[in-house]
Design a binder for these strands. Structure first.
Lengths: 128, 128, 128, 128
DNA sequence: GTGGTCTAGACCACG
DNA sequence: GTGGTCTAGACCACC
């Protein structure tokens, strides 16, 4: 797995790393039961501080994506039953990008095509 | 226009304000040609410092949403044809929320319903 | 003569107007002895405040470009013998744009071509 | 590097600082990959407020001269291939000074000598 | 240590 | 009246 980090982004590194891992799970590059690289290994690969990786892993654990086992390190979990506010959270996250894209002239159809493309890259997604 | 700011959010105030204004344009609460409240006025309304509002306005100007006329203050612009990378930006912004929602069990259909609801609130959007 | 003003520019209007008039003199659109429009007329044409035009004219007078005659209004002068620091001032003004253009990859030859083009538009310039 | 600021100039400090840094890059005093002093350090050296330096750095970042790395602060970038309108921008910037100098009697040859002198001070410039 | 944000209050130029 | 700039001093997140 290749992790792309942008050190000059305004998004903190630990958060970028977290996002990349979640996307990796979505794409099927990490399957439930898989181990994540150890904190050190990941830190070396990415050229960042182990503390930063640690923070990422703690967050992923709190969010229910992984379990951290003293003996085996971080393991991807099977079910991601997080908080039940998926819809509200999603709506809040979509509102701004959709509005901006609309104002900049993007057609709704084109928007849906784009969504389809994203869905098609997801593991186990219903193809349309 | 009522601007809702969350002072305990991790999103900077100047950015929240910027987002609220863009959403306002999307909803048609601000129409092209309209004046935005003056920096001081907006600052008073929101209970924040004028410099913070100033930063927001500068950003909106750079992004092409408004022009700051020496004589009349800030005015909403007509065309928002900014950079041609609307699609790429949108895709980058959608990737993560869609992936997360999918992994948490949200069906694609439900996702599209949610998008429709957002679109239906936009000024001049094609109703489906 | 058409005056182009940008009301959202960071350059004050009175200064933009001053620059446009100097450029007009350079192009030969205003010849020595010509009258400038009256303050009112100019203000109307440009859609700006007469006070602003007044400020421009005062500045042009101080800089030695025009004379302001109570009876005839503003007249373009023949000789523009300003302060003798033309070279130093010019060097200071050229340093930054040349450096930036160079750093952005503009070749020296291209730069000189561009200068030639500007010179060729000047009244009474030696053609090369 | 010595930064010369004129506190009585009409050009804002943050802009003067920005210009000085770009000139420094042009002269080779800052090479790609070099670190700029930290915001606080630069502020101390120049005797100005850190926020002012911050504004300069943000502007340099937006203009593509530097990147602000979360870990190491500001770094001079390698390529300055920004917007493709270098020529137009340059022309707009040269028009006025050339016109004024011409009207004040400066010969074209003298102008070119002056340009040569500026070019000769640039890092990696072709000597003529 | 770094940069990022925000405030309060001041002063200035512009129109 | 408007926006633009600057300061001093504070607090925060990140690494």
């Amino acid at each position: 797995m290749v992790i792309g980090l942008d050190f000059s982004s305004s998004i903190p590194i630990y958060r970028q790393l977290r996002n990349q891992i979640v996307l990796g799970i979505g794409r099927g590059q990490f399957a439930p039961g898989d181990d994540l690289p150890s904190v050190r290994q990941m830190a070396d690969e990415c050229g960042i501080n182990p503390m930063t990786v640690n923070k990422t892993y703690q967050q992923l654990k709190e969010e229910g994506w992984i379990a951290i086992d003293r003996r085996h390190g971080a393991v991807i979990l099977e079910h991601f039953e997080g908080k039940p506010d998926v819809r509200e959270k999603l709506q809040a996250e979509l509102m701004l990008p959709i509005t901006e894209a609309h104002l900049k002239g993007l057609e709704k159809e084109e928007f849906y095509q784009l969504c389809e493309r994203i869905f098609s890259q997801l593991r186990g997604a219903t193809q349309c």
